[in-house]
Design a protein around this nucleic acid. Structure first.
Length: 570
RNA sequence: UGGGGUAUGGUGUAACGGUAGCACGCCGGACUCUGACUCCGUCAGUCUUGGUUCAAAUCCAGGUACCCCAGCCA
């Protein structure tokens, strides 16, 4: 995205003809067609005070997407104007996550802090023109003077200082003569404005904290409102896309751009942020989940952070696909989690290799299979991709099947194993259960069965059919593993709805750890970051916590399970 | 009598004065060496009241509901 040549308006409109459509893209098309702009520049402007989450992905996909579609450029710009909250750790993580999502800012990496000198000059410009003043009021007083939503504010007693006096004070703020909070610089607009943002907003404040990039160079920092629009202008951003809550900052954004000698005239457009069922997407809450230890960290696989989703095994293209299905509007909305699940399954069904793993093992002894013999069977890697290859699974006299796949008093609709019933072992043989062995407490501890050697590979030469197919693992070859089963972090679709503390809605069953899962041997050394399917169970990925001895797998997502659904209904 | 926004099936969206469409979900069925996948079918919507028009989700007027704003956060 570095050396992009701006296309002509008609070229861009044409190239875009069958792409996504929304009101933002319509505006851009119009601006290109009318000649209002000759090319598109957008930006993704994260504040480095937390990790990126799937809500940010919407903004990233929009900003980079639009730039790509119209032959423009999208900058990555850190909004690093508040050293009290921002850290290098977050800066590094954000870049990694944007790249992982699949976007490239090329050389266009910027920071609001790159413009601190220019911004300072702009502030002086405002002062010189009588449009800004240094206020001695403290925070509490400023709030009182601001008035309320329904009552106008009052002018600060310091509002009418001369430009010379203001310039002097502002320079002394910069020089570090005052403590945090002692003085601020305010734009002089209208204390009676219906829009609170226009009631002489603070544009510079004193923060005696080192900045991750500028170190101790500055004692004063611009506020978001003063930095953002001007940074956009300096970068020649044409369309500054942000979320709805900034809508009533737009008059201020415009006011500043109009009163400052900036090199360009950017426009701000707002769209609604993403809300997702069964999760929270506010930085405040996500930070709280991490700092209070409700999750293991920003990359806990239950977190909606990009790093959490990555560790969970969610491929980035599924996030992009999900976002693209959402559309871009100004309507507040909560997207059902099932749409996200659909996108993940749709992709993984095509892309993920299949392997077998037994989560809750039940031993089955095949009585007519010779002891000590190994039959190496061929299992296709992915039935959705028949040319994709295959791997070998060893079959022996003793195997494990899933406890759920056997039932003593099985109803007719139960297609799995039961005493006297015949099922297929995936890629292997038909077996028939001949005996059930229990311990003193009556728990089923082992099954006895016979197999039909004629059904090797999974088909009976006599054409006889079985209703059920089970996954299985050879007991002597099995690789023991820890498997982590994740569910929604919250048990309510809207955590905290109805005035509840959202933490009360935390799902106590969001993580279930299985210590003794049995994996087919080809799963030893499975690479992290390559999501696969455990047949009939779901999609999984190797976690970095695994060792050569005991791998650890995270469940990315279950398969749809109409049997479980039918059972629940009774 | 503060300001700014938004209203289309359960959910997310499309339709830009001319047959309300798509996707997810739900429900039912077919198929199946994954009770997966795939396929087929069903249900279901223009916030409300008026007005303009041959014709309104769309234009106009009045209601109603919901969201955002009183950080020296972004």
């Amino acid at each position: 995205m570095t050396e992009t040549t701006p296309q002509t308006a008609s070229q861009a409109a044409e190239a875009e003809a069958d792409g996504p459509r929304d009101f933002i893209r319509d505006i851009i098309k119009g601006d290109l067609a009318s000649g209002k702009v000759s090319g598109i520049v957008t930006r993704f402007p994260p504040e480095p005070n937390g990790y990126l989450h799937i809500g940010h992905a919407k903004s990233i996909c929009l900003n980079f997407g639009v730039a790509g579609e119209f032959g423009g450029q999208c900058n990555l710009r850190f909004d690093d104007t508040n050293p009290a909250k921002e850290e290098q750790e977050f800066i590094d993580a954000i870049m990694e996550d944007v790249r992982w999502l699949g976007f490239d800012w090329g050389d266009n990496l910027f920071h609001a802090s790159d413009y601190f000198d220019t911004l300072y000059g702009y502030a002086c410009h405002l002062i010189e023109n009588g449009l800004a003043y240094v206020d001695d009021l403290n925070g509490e007083e400023i709030r009182e003077y601001r008035g309320t939503l329904t009552e106008p504010g009052r002018n600060s007693p310091h509002r009418d200082r001369t430009p010379a006096e203001n310039l002097d004070l502002f320079q002394r703020m910069k020089a570090g003569e005052f403590n945090d909070g002692e003085r601020v610089l305010r734009a002089k607009i209208d204390m009676a404005h219906g829009n609170m943002n226009m009631r002489d907003p603070v544009i510079y404040r004193i923060v005696n904290k080192p900045h991750p990039r500028t170190g101790d160079a500055w004692k004063i920092y611009p506020t978001y409102d003063f930095a953002h629009g001007q940074s956009d202008a300096l970068e020649k951003v044409t369309h500054s896309l942000c979320t709805l809550e900034f809508e009533d900052h737009r008059p201020l954004y415009d006011w500043l751009v109009e009163h400052l000698p900036v090199p360009a005239r950017p426009r701000q457009y707002e769209f609604s942020r993403l809300n997702l069922g069964y999760t929270v997407l506010s930085k405040r809450r996500l930070t709280q989940l991490v700092t209070e230890g409700h999750v293991s960290g920003w990359d806990d696989p239950r977190m909606p952070t990009l790093t959490g989703l990555r560790r969970r095994g969610i491929p980035p293209e599924t996030i992009r696909e999900f976002i693209s299905r959402l559309g871009v509007t100004k309507q507040d909305s909560v997207v059902e989690f099932s749409l996200f699940e659909h996108c993940v399954r749709e992709h993984l069904n095509k892309a993920a290799e299949r392997r077998m793993a037994v989560l809750r093992p039940l031993k089955v002894v095949i009585e007519n299979f010779p002891e000590g013999e190994v039959d190496n069977l061929d299992a296709i890697d992915n039935p959705e991709d028949p040319d994709g290859g295959s791997h070998t699974v060893p079959f022996t006299r003793e195997i494990y099947i899933e406890q759920d796949d056997f039932m003593e008093d099985a109803p007719k609709k139960f297609f799995r194993l039961s005493l006297g019933r015949e099922v297929r072992l995936r890629y292997a043989f038909f077996i028939t259960c001949t005996d059930v062995i229990k311990d003193d407490a009556g728990n089923i501890i082992e099954l006895r069965a016979t197999y039909d050697p004629e059904t090797r590979g999974g088909d009976a030469p006599d054409g006889r059919k079985v209703k059920g197919t089970l996954h299985w693992v050879s007991a002597s070859h099995a690789v023991k593993a820890q498997v982590r089963l994740y569910d929604h972090l919250f048990q309510e679709e809207s955590p905290g709805a109805g005035g509840r503390d959202y933490l009360e809605d935390l799902n106590p069953g969001s993580l279930e750890v299985i210590e003794d899962a049995m994996l087919e041997p080809s799963l030893a050394g499975w690479p992290t970051g390559k999501t696969l399917q455990f047949e009939r169970l779901g999609y999984f990925c190797a976690d970095r916590d695994g060792t050569a001895d005991t791998p650890v797998f995270n469940r990315t997502m279950t398969l749809r399970d109409s049997w479980a659904k039918a059972q629940k209904k009774g």
